[in-house]
């Protein structure tokens, strides 16, 4: 049973860490209706900044705040390119993402590893004082859980503020926003800033967890984010009482769970992605069938 428990814990931890990225994609893709490819660059950006700061002995929790700020900056750039320079949404993201590849390498020098002596959010003094008696994987789980939940709650509260409602309005009916005498460009920029701050935070925590930054770690993260958003929202589509953030949190955990199952089954390594794809399809069909059932009732 220990094996199962350990596997479940580390899978859950991965799902929680990457859930922050999913929140980000949820904001841009689902709320703003903005396909933001900046993510592939802002995710490693968070990790690069964190790797450099950790090796210099910066306080681990401070590195998270700095990563959030830098990620926000990346979102701001995409937003400005799109709104002020009138570049199409997809292209604006691609431009920032491409630039970030070089910038990340400029920040970190090349791929980077953080030595084990450097303290991370999982081994820092305050965490050790509270949870020092627990094995590392439990500490990782608890810290990631806390961060993922704090992120979710803050986001939930924000989305209910006037500013947050405007964000949702831009995605649903941007004419309405203009008729309210609000600048929809500014709202879009705000959304991109928040989204990429979350994505960079996710990258930063991955760096804490892996003690490494790799320039290619961002590749495919947009796809991951989209998949988790779609899985999560499809599963909970008919349950209006479940918040979007909760849905993508579950989506992220399920995604990592699928990969974990594919690994654990011990299938030929090259089939991993295929199996993962089949599992996703299963989840989506499951969600869809359920939706159909509800309709039949109505």
């Amino acid at each position: 049973m220990n094996v199962l428990l350990d596997l479940a814990i580390s899978t859950l931890t991965q799902g929680l860490i990457y859930a922050l990225l999913s929140y980000g994609v949820y904001i841009t893709y689902k709320i703003l209706d903005f396909p933001d490819l900046t993510v592939d660059g802002s995710f490693p950006l968070g990790a690069a900044v964190t790797a450099v700061l950790l090796t210099r002995g910066t306080d681990p929790f401070l590195t998270l705040l700095i990563a959030i700020a830098i990620g926000a900056l990346a979102g701001l750039v995409t937003g400005l390119i799109h709104v002020r320079l009138h570049v199409r949404d997809l292209l604006a993201g691609i431009i920032t993402m491409t630039a970030l590849f070089s910038i990340n390498l400029q920040i970190a020098g090349s791929n980077m590893t953080v030595e084990r002596a450097a303290s991370t959010i999982f081994t820092a003094d305050p965490v050790m004082a509270l949870l020092g008696a627990l094995p590392l994987i439990y500490r990782k789980l608890i810290v990631s859980l806390l961060i993922a939940l704090i992120g979710k709650l803050v986001l939930d509260v924000y989305l209910k503020t006037k500013n947050g409602l405007l964000l949702r309005a831009v995605g649903d009916n941007s004419v309405l926003v203009t008729s309210l005498a609000k600048d929809k460009g500014l709202v879009k920029i705000t959304g991109l800033v928040i989204a990429n701050a979350l994505v960079a935070l996710s990258g930063a925590i991955v760096c804490h967890e892996q003690r490494a930054f790799s320039s290619t770690m961002g590749t495919g993260q947009v796809v991951f984010g989209l998949a988790t958003v779609i899985i999560g929202t499809t599963l909970f589509r008919s349950m209006s009482f479940v918040k979007g953030t909760t849905a993508v949190l579950v989506g992220s955990i399920l995604y990592k769970g699928c990969i974990q199952i594919a690994i654990s089954i011990g299938l030929p390594a090259n089939l991993l992605k295929l199996v993962t794809a089949v599992l996703f399809l299963g989840i989506l069909v499951f969600g869809h069938a359920r939706k159909g059932g509800v309709k039949a009732h109505a």
Binding site: L4, L7, S10, Q260
Partner: peptide
């Protein structure tokens, strides 16, 4: 995830 599976 592979490494974590080994560890588990």
């Amino acid at each position: 995830q592979i490494a974590q599976t080994f560890s588990a």
